[in-house]
Write a protein that binds this DNA or RNA. Structure first.
Lengths: 261, 261
DNA sequence: AATTGAGTTCCACATAATGGAACTTAAGAG
DNA sequence: CTCTTAAGTTCCATTATGTGGAACTCAATT
């Protein structure tokens, strides 16, 4: 649980999404009463909300009366992905970076205090794709997340930093704000962010920030590799390539989305 | 456009989903006025609905004021996929079928008059995964779709058939209800459905139906291959394997979801 | 048979969505 | 450069819609 589910739904729609997010965030199946405890709503209300969600195919009921997210979401997400403009622009650059490094390449965008992975390129498709794309990870322990943070204007950065809840994932996870601030300073200086097995043991990466002209949109690209096979030196050596990829994506964005709104 | 967007949203939530589906179904970018024509709502109302959707991250605005689906959908769909019980049960069986045939294996569930692909197993990952999973195709021109239809109780089948709008995708696409009814009879007899390049030229498949005990849930598995490499004879020869896979999935469902609700 | 807890239905009430109209911008024509 | 038309946005009285307390059903447990 990151701070992501402290989302306060506004309006009828917001409440509905809150229910979906509660179901999404739960590590184990939820039944009616479990949900009732999670979302702060009266029984009658929640019951009707759930009915509506089921009606729309956003939620469905299992045999044991627990809930799971519905197929409508898959259908919509499939279109959200293929129709995403930023992803389409970045795609060829990701492929190129993959060809140059031979390793897995990720594209992620910053949203609140988490990173949502928009795309992934890897050759040996050992891992299933859906398990990564759309996946949300905390900012402070991913290369893409830290890179994205570094690209924010100071005022905005402070707001986001304040919202982070630190949780130790591995031995090397940044423990607190002070450590994160230190890293961000370094990232701003070098234009590169490293994840030194901070999210998952055995996995490290180099990442570079991507941002729109006015920095209201920030994202990142990374090259990720298993630590046993790729050394930190090798990772560092890829730094310039990753930075160039990010730069190329930004150029393309500027060119294809008009000089500026 | 299939009959899918004749969805009539009920309640506030339904209207919101209608807007999302309109954006999802559009082949080209929509601006405010375009959307206004598609969803039948007064300007002020639509405007506020859009604001709410944007607020929740379900929609976002491009530089040119056209809309695209938001990242929240990716995040939720990622969980919808990994948490889906049916998919999890079917997964090992799909892998086994893939190993036996060496070809691409699909799992799809019936929803209204379309099939939504829930999973896909293939070795050479030439095609991007998101382009298939979550993808919705018409029932009448896919193996999985026809297999699923054949498993419906008659009353339900008739309702669905009535809602189908036939559109010719290829030379061999079933042209009308009569043709489809004929096929369904055959599928019921043999337990196997074929897609003879009816959806896409050069691609054909064998599929078998999957259903829950009371048939309120129907789906299908298929083995798909390019026509230039795999003959109809070979496809037919795989039939029993596909049927066995479907049977194994149903057994697993019965065992893991309780003898019956 | 009695008790508890889960899940569902109902309805007077209040909140939140509605939609008409007025208001800004932005684009095109004369 | 001003006029005109169209696109996009805001406002607010009206009303429809969602709300939530309480009563109810159903199943499991003792």
């Amino acid at each position: 649980m990151t701070a992501a589910n402290e989302h306060v739904g506004t309006g009828t729609l917001g409440k509905a999404i809150d229910v979906l997010e509660a179901v999404a965030a739960a590590p184990e199946p939820l039944r009616f009463t479990d949900l009732l405890k999670l979302v702060d709503q009266p029984r009658g209300t929640l019951h009707r909300q759930i009915s509506n969600l089921i009606e729309e195919g956003l939620l469905s009921v299992r045999r044991d009366n627990s809930y799971e997210l519905g197929l409508t979401l898959l259908k919509l997400a499939s279109r959200a992905w293929s129709g995403n403009q930023f992803r389409a622009i970045a795609e060829p650059h990701l492929k190129r970076l993959h060809e140059l490094t031979g390793e897995t390449v990720h594209l992620g965008v910053l949203r609140g205090v988490e990173v949502i992975y928009l795309d992934k390129v890897e050759s040996r498709q050992a891992v299933r794709m859906y398990s990564q794309i759309g996946n949300a990870s905390p900012v402070y322990c991913t290369g893409v997340g830290k890179a994205a943070l570094s690209a924010l204007p100071d005022a905005e950065l402070e707001k986001r930093l304040a919202a982070i809840v630190f949780k130790r994932h591995t031995e090397t996870t940044l423990p607190d704000l002070a450590a994160l601030r230190g890293e961000i300073a370094e990232i701003r200086a070098s234009g590169l962010a490293f994840d030194r097995q901070e999210h998952e043991v055995g996995i490290h990466c180099v990442a570079a920030p991507i941002h729109s002209r006015d920095r209201d949109f920030v994202a990142g690209v990374s090259a990720t590799a298993p630590a046993y096979r790729i050394s930190m030196e090798q990772l560092t050596a890829w730094g310039p390539l990753v930075r160039e990829t990010a730069a190329a994506i930004m150029e393309d964005m500027a060119a294809r989305l008009g000089p500026k709104a």
